[in-house]
Design a binder for these strands. Structure first.
Lengths: 135, 135
DNA sequence: TTAAATGTAATAAAATATGTTACAATTTGG
DNA sequence: CCAAATTGTAACATATTTTATTACATTTAA
């Protein structure tokens, strides 16, 4: 997760939470984040697949939350944008002739999954409403 | 942490733990991981600064643990290789004229630090000895 | 004194992430 | 119906990060 995707997603969702029901355009959102509107549309596409937002095409179109901000957990957002293991990639070509090389990736997978679960538990207790109420 | 550095470090340390006291060369370690020996030496350099391993230069040189595997916590390893926030980068150019843009990075920093602390707590309970005993 | 190792800088290559352009499809209002 | 504004997405370009490689000075044991 060495990228800005979760930050971008939380920024988008915070803006939507602050404009409850109103449709915001990707261009307007992009202006608040300071990125290209296409980046915003791509991230919105991901959030849409997760059922967190909905969009209307065409003139006067835009995006709004699909759920109340109280019902959106930060864990849902994380899972929507998540691409790879939190603690990193496993070693790519471990030597199967070595007892450590042969088994390390399975062991790492377990460890990383457990660590990630701790983060999910934490993020599962926080809602978008709480996160965005300070703005 | 979208890289293999923690995996590589744990692989190195597991090999050292399994050869208690013996000096292992970067070339030998690299052969088990399946990477270039210079990658191993660079990672060892980082682990050395953290006080986890020690090396001897010259012929018959190599690297060994500087502490018993029971005294090395996986949190120490994580902190040694850690470079950036676990949950990613903050947004780079948020618009200060927007209430959300103005404050989001501070809010993200707090959230990300708390999440990372959960991982540190988890990894602080695990030792290298436990992690590597299965090999 | 030679061979084998570390330590590290410099560079190259590969992989990821971000940005941009373009344009079809959709939808509203005039 | 038409023009304007928007989404959705593909294709491509650029930038950044990660990994690999080469080179070589330094250290140390036999």
């Amino acid at each position: 997760m060495n990228n800005t995707r979760l930050s971008t997603a939380l920024h988008i969702l915070s803006l939507l939470a602050h404009n409850d029901g109103n449709l915001l355009t990707s261009e307007w959102i992009a202006g608040s984040i300071g990125v290209n509107p296409v980046i915003v549309r791509k991230e919105i596409s991901v959030l849409k697949k997760a059922g967190l937002v909905e969009s209307l095409a065409g003139k006067e179109g835009g995006t709004r939350l699909a759920l109340s901000a109280k019902k959106i957990k930060l864990a849902d957002v994380y899972q929507a944008v998540r691409q790879s293991s939190l603690l990193g990639k496993q070693n790519q070509h471990p030597n199967p002739a070595c007892p450590v090389g042969k088994n390390i990736n399975a062991e790492l997978a377990t460890l990383y999954a457990e660590a990630e679960q701790k983060v999910l538990n934490f993020l599962g207790k926080k809602t978008l409403a709480e996160f965005s109420k300070v703005f």
